[in-house]
């Protein structure tokens, strides 16, 4: 079942293997029945950890409980998440190239009017909005991940034309990609000296430290998500040139 990959995408959507069908229906039905009984047996009086979090919210340095959980109470999760994102980016980075600059703007002759207007007007607005989301994350819904995702969306918009190109293996890009993980680990281990345990912020500076980590995380997440998108485009250009070489030979 897993050892073939259909090239025709318009084939039948279902494998005609009855055994896997029956097995999956059975397993999914069993899971569904068990969890539904568990959920129905819950009386709804349990509040989870909400009371603990609201009691300790002053200790975290921010007033938005989700940001407090993400970057203070369970900062370890966020640290590992950023590490996972970095590992994925390392796995799919396009070809190694030290010489082209980090950001390049190429003048293209054929201009798509709608696209260039979108790039001129929407992208700066998205950047401002992402900055607001990052700043508002301390006390309102928002934060580093949302801001990074918005900026990555803006970069996807920029990549729609061939005008803008980013080299993800230039030294600047490397520094920016590992920036958040480096800052996070440095602050976390430095706090062992001052506070006695990993990632325990001092009460006076916690808001500032969280904002610093979030800003670095926004930059790194933006670049990481943008590289995930442009890995498909970069490989495409590469394979086209490969094909040309092949036909010439």
């Amino acid at each position: 079942m897993f050892n073939k990959l259909d090239i025709e995408y318009d084939g039948p959507p279902v494998d005609k293997s009855a055994l896997s069908l029956i097995a999956s229906v059975l397993v999914a039905g069993l899971l569904l029945a068990v969890t539904i009984t568990i959920v129905l047996s819950d009386k709804g009086h349990n509040t989870g950890l909400a009371t603990v979090i609201t009691q300790n919210i002053e200790l975290s340095g921010v007033t938005n409980p989700v940001t407090a959980v993400l970057l203070n109470f369970r900062a370890y999760d966020t640290l590992l998440e950023i590490a996972v994102l970095l590992v994925v980016v390392l796995a799919i980075l396009p070809t190694r190239d030290h010489h082209t600059p980090f950001f390049k703007r190429i003048e293209v002759n054929k201009q798509n009017l709608v696209l260039s207007a979108l790039q001129c007007w929407i992208a700066p607005a998205v950047v401002i909005f992402a900055g607001y989301l990052l700043w508002a994350g301390a006390h309102q819904p928002g934060g580093a991940f949302q801001a990074g995702a918005l900026l990555a969306g803006a970069s996807v918009l920029l990549f729609q034309s061939d005008t803008y190109q980013i080299n993800y293996t230039s030294p600047i890009a490397r520094v920016l990609l590992v920036l958040s993980l480096g800052v996070f680990i440095t602050i976390g281990t430095a706090l062992i000296w001052f506070e006695g345990s990993l990632l325990t912020y001092p009460l006076a500076f916690s808001g500032l430290l969280i904002l610093l980590i979030e800003t670095c995380a926004t930059v790194s997440i933006t670049l990481a998500l943008a590289s995930l998108y442009s890995s498909f485009i970069a490989n495409e250009n590469l394979s086209i040139t490969d094909n040309k070489h092949r036909t010439i030979e």
Partner: peptide, 19 residues
């Protein structure tokens, strides 16, 4: 009461899922 801990977990999970 809305429990913010699962929200944080899901926020982490979304980014991991896209990766």
């Amino acid at each position: 009461v809305v429990d913010p801990l699962p929200h944080a977990l899901v926020l982490t999970g979304i980014v991991i899922a896209v990766a």
